[in-house]
């Protein structure tokens, strides 16, 4: 017997009339199982799918890692496959902040301002050793990791990371988001 919409747990006013026969919609589909003809999902999953497929980064190149970040836009490590080649200049239009490079104390205030200007949901990738932990610079002027001032979702190591490594980080971010992991600002405080 064909499954009805209410067998899927969907509520509708037609279902309050239990003895009603199959609707026009269900007759037209004619499928044994509705899954063969329709894609069923929840609103959250659909939104996550859309957000993942077009997560636009902010142009935030600081130092050497910025050059490798530019090369993922280039033709060989094409990031347009993931819908991310549109680097937005304005943080208000961006979803993803890739902190690529060492963060000096003087730059910490502008970074925080840019992060605050981004609209939620927003993610942060700390690209490279310097953004993750201060890297090879342990001195008076370099912030020992951008997670001192921003909640970070993904850390990508190496100095500078290969473009493939950065893409692995981005793909893991996509997978985490699809699986329902909330962005970092909901999960953690900044490290002190």
């Amino acid at each position: 017997m064909a499954k009805r919409l209410r067998d899927y747990g969907l509520q509708s006013e037609r279902l309050l009339w239990p003895t009603k026969g199959p609707s026009r919609f269900e007759e037209e589909l004619g499928a044994e199982e509705l899954e063969r003809a329709l894609g069923l999902t929840t609103l959250e999953k659909a939104m996550r799918w859309a957000q993942t497929r077009s997560m636009w980064p902010d142009t935030f190149g600081l130092a050497c890692c910025a050059i490798e970040m530019m090369s993922i836009v280039s033709a060989r490590y094409d990031i347009a496959r993931f819908g991310m080649e549109a680097f937005r200049s304005s943080p208000r239009q961006a979803d993803l902040l890739i902190v690529s490079g060492r963060v000096a104390h003087k730059m910490a205030a502008p970074i925080r301002q840019i992060y605050d200007q981004m609209l939620e949901p927003k993610w942060v990738i700390a690209m490279g050793a310097c953004a993750s932990s201060g890297g090879m610079f342990n001195n008076y002027t370099i912030l020992q990791g951008v997670d001192r001032i921003l909640p970070v979702d993904i850390y990508v190591p190496f100095c500078p990371p290969r473009p493939e490594a950065l893409m692995e980080g981005i793909i893991r971010l996509h997978e985490a988001h699809l699986a329902g992991v909330p962005p970092a600002y909901e999960r953690k405080e900044v490290a002190t």
Partner: peptide, 11 residues
């Protein structure tokens, strides 16, 4: 300038 001062010389 100075937003990327890394202190190379001191390090």
């Amino acid at each position: 300038i100075g937003y990327l001062h890394t202190g190379f010389e001191k390090t």
